[in-house]
């Protein structure tokens, strides 16, 4: 049983990432989409919750000129997004 958390807001404008710390369970997944992908920028990384897998949607990174260092953040395509919603039990959108 796990949850996919979708974040579409920049971490510099919204507190979703902080709230997420008390909202995730071990084994949950986080997918950054839209302006959420700006969390891939260096200084935001320290706020990521532990024990969860965080990825960014590649198309939204590319369109914004963000190239997450692969060691920090894995990117997935839309097919990967679909697969994550299918393999987890529920999706929560944070906006």
């Amino acid at each position: 049983m796990s949850t996919l958390h979708l974040i579409n807001r920049s971490p510099f404008a919204a507190s979703a990432l902080q709230e997420l710390v008390s909202a995730v369970s071990e084994g949950d997944h986080v997918l950054l989409i839209e302006d959420g992908v700006y969390a891939a920028l260096g200084t935001a990384a320290s706020k990521w919750p532990e024990g969860v897998e965080i990825r960014a949607l590649r198309e939204d990174c590319v369109s914004r000129g963000i190239a997450p260092a692969s060691t920090l953040l894995e990117t997935i395509d839309v097919a990967g997004f679909v697969a994550l919603t299918a393999s987890t039990d529920r999706t929560v959108s944070w906006f």
């Binding site: 579409n8 989409i33 839209e34 302006d35 198309e59 839309v78 097919a79 997004f81 679909v82 697969a83 299918a86």
Partner: peptide, 19 residues
């Protein structure tokens, strides 16, 4: 906002995985 674009992009990608 991007919400409509994101939703359509997602929906259009569902059939490729049988959904």
């Amino acid at each position: 906002q991007q919400a409509s674009h994101s939703a359509l992009r997602f929906a259009e990608a569902l059939p490729a995985q049988g959904h």
